[in-house]
Amino acid sequence: MTSIGKLLLYAGFLVAAFASVQQADEPELKWQAVTWSLYAIGATVGFAGVVVLRISATQVGTHSHKIDADMQTIDNTLNLLVEKIESLNKNRDDIGVYGIHPHIDDHIVEDLGAFVEVRESIAHRYGLQRYADLMSQFALAERNLNRAWSASADGYIDETWLCLDNARNLMKDAQQLFHQYRHTETAQ
């Protein structure tokens, strides 16, 4: 169904785009420089594609195997991130302030990327509002990690520890929020 929607959208767009540029401007043409009848046909087909895509997106959000797999990835990644930041916090005195930023690069950045890669599935499954709420927490956690990175590179120990604490708490909040979504889904 998604393919049909995209096909209609692209075909309609191309037809309407062609109608938009079919004639060059001439003083006497003005609004007739666009072939509006053809444009209307293209726009209607394109709009039909939009409707099909929207319906398809709703269905995909609830039934797709890909989305299921992405949900699992998100769950795993959030668990991993919480675990790794927790561990970094525990061992921070041993690692030392200047060791924090290489540690983040080597052990955490890839997991952050993995989450970001599949994040849009959250919107498909749970809607934009919940996606926004979860991403707010995640982004705050990530920004605190980034700040810990900078403070560590500059040797500011208090700021580094504070940001690591914040990052851990915020990532836990994100994890809990995601678990709530899944729990509500299962209950329904």
């Binding site: 309407a16 003005k30 726009a43 895509l53 849009e120």
Partner: peptide
């Protein structure tokens, strides 16, 4: 009096269709 308003209008319609498609 020489503004290609017709092309802006046609383009705006195309943009609206794409924006509502849900393809970010």
């Amino acid at each position: 009096g020489d503004v290609p308003a017709w092309r802006y209008t046609a383009g705006a319609g195309l943009g609206l269709i794409l924006a509502f498609s849900g393809l970010g």
